[in-house]
Design a protein around this nucleic acid. Structure first.
Lengths: 216, 216
DNA sequence: ATGTTTAAATGACGTGCGGTCATTTAATAA
DNA sequence: TTATTAAATGACCGCACGTCATTTAAACAT
C-alpha cells in the first residue's frame, strides 16, 4: 500500500485506492477462500478502515463481482493465448479446462455468481457485469470458430455451453477437503468417479460433436 | 405442531420432534429461500426455542443436508413414476428436467451442496448423504438402461452426467429476480439465450448420443 | 501565509446471525 | 412421594455486514 497517499481527491487517486483494495481482496481471497472472506480482514490487509471500503464498494458482493469480472478477463486472455490456429476438439476443451483451473479465482467465483453474488449487488453493477460477459463470450466465440471449424452461431452456442458444463463439472472440486479423514471405500470410489477433468473434457467433446452435426 | 408433546423422551418421540422441525424447515425454505433462512425463524416456526434445534441438528447446514437428502428421494421417486417402459432420449431428459424443476427444494439445494452445505456438516452426515446419493444414482441408472437401450455402465455414466448438467444449466434460474427492473435489450437478450430448459434438454440429448456411440 | 471549504477517512455503533451452556423442569424410576 | 434424568430453555458470546456523525487532510480563496 502507498503510505504517502493519505487521502484520495482526484479521480486518478480514487481509482488507485480502489485498485489497492482490490489487490488486497485478491490476496485475502487466495488466503481464506470465499466463505471466510470478511470485510474487516480485507480492510486490515488494504491498510484502511472498514468504513472506507464502503466508499468504494456498495457491498461485499460488489467486491466479489469485480473480482469475478477481472478473473474472467484474465482467464479469457490466457486461454486465447494458449490456443493454436487449428486444434482438435479435445485439445481445445482440454486447454480451456486447464487454463480455467489454473486461475485461483475464476471457477470459485463463477460457481457462486448467480446463487450468491448477483443477489446483493446494484442493478448497475449487474448490468455492467453482464455486458462485460457478453463481450468476452463473443470474443471467445469469434476466436473459436476458425479453430474448430464451426459457423459463428455454432461457435457462440459452444462457448455458452462450455460455461455451463464447467460450472457443473467442477462442483465436486469445491467440496470439503477430507484430507486425513478416513472415508469408506464405496464413498471414496464415488468421489473418484466424479473427476472434474474427465467429466468436463469428455462431455465437452460430446457437446461440440453434437453442435457440429446441427445446422446452426 | 403437537402441543401435547412437551418433552420427547423415547426414540419415537425424538424422531417425531425431528420431523416436526424438518417440516417447519421446509416451510421456512419455501417462504424465504436459502440465503434468508435463519435458525431463529426456524425455531419460531417449529414452536421451539433456538437451542432446541441444536439438540437435533449439529449445524444449520445439517438441516439443509437433510432437506437435500429428502428432496433427492422425493424427486427420484416422482421422476421414475413419470417414466415409461420405452422413451426417446428427448422425452426422458425432458421428463427429468420437468420433474426436477417441479420440486421447490431439489435444485436450489443441489446447487449449493458442495460449495456451502458440505463444508459445515459432520463427516458422519456427509458419508451418510453420499451413500444415499450412490443408492439413488444406481437406482436411477438401473431403471434407465432398458428405457434408453443403454448398457448398465453407459446408463450409470449417463445419470451421473445428467446431475452435472442439471446444476450447470439451472444456474441462470438462480439469479436475482429483476422483476420490474428495466434491463437493457442486449442484457435481456443474453439472459433469454440461457434458457435452462433449452440448455439442459439439448445438451443432455447430445451427451446421451455421445455415450451411446461409446463402447462402455 | 492564513483562513475557509470540501469530502475522504474514520471508528464507534446498530442489528442480526450461528452456536453454546448453565439452569430449569417435565417425565420417569425408585 | 421423592430422587433421578435429560429434554428444553433463553441469556449469552463472538463475529459478521453495513451505517453515519465526526474528524481531518488537502485544495481553494483571500
Amino acid at each position: 500500500m502507498n503510505r504517502t497517499l493519505k487521502r484520495a481527491r482526484t479521480q486518478d487517486q480514487k481509482f488507485f485506492r480502489r485498485q489497492q483494495i482490490l489487490e488486497a481482496a485478491e490476496q485475502h481471497f487466495d488466503e481464506v477462500g470465499y466463505e471466510a472472506f470478511s470485510m474487516a480482514n480485507l480492510a486490515k490487509l488494504a491498510g484502511v478502515v472498514k468504513g472506507t471500503l464502503y466508499l468504494y464498494f456498495k457491498t461485499r458482493e460488489e467486491v466479489f463481482l469485480t473480482l469475478y469480472n477481472q478473473s474472467l478477463s484474465r482467464w479469457s486472455e490466457t486461454f486465447l493465448g494458449s490456443c493454436k490456429d487449428k486444434m482438435s476438439d479435445r485439445d481445445y476443451v482440454s486447454t480451456l479446462y486447464t487454463t480455467a483451473m489454473a486461475d485461483a479465482h475464476f471457477v470459485p467465483l463463477l460457481a457462486r455468481l448467480e446463487h450468491v453474488i448477483e443477489h446483493n449487488v446494484s442493478i448497475e453493477s449487474l448490468i455492467e457485469s453482464k455486458r462485460h460477459f457478453i463481450s468476452r463470450v463473443e470474443h471467445l466465440a469469434g476466436a473459436a470458430a476458425p479453430i474448430l471449424s464451426l459457423t459463428p452461431s455454432q461457435s457462440l452456442e459452444m462457448v455458452k455451453t462450455m460455461g455451463v458444463l464447467l460450472v457443473g463439472a467442477t462442483r465436486t472440486d469445491q467440496g470439503p477437503s477430507l484430507q486425513g479423514e478416513d472415508i469408506p471405500e464405496d464413498v471414496q470410489a464415488l468421489m473418484d468417479s466424479f473427476s472434474s477433468e474427465h467429466l468436463f473434457i469428455k462431455n465437452a467433446c460430446r457437446i461440440i460433436q453434437g453442435i457440429r452435426t446441427t445446422t446452426g
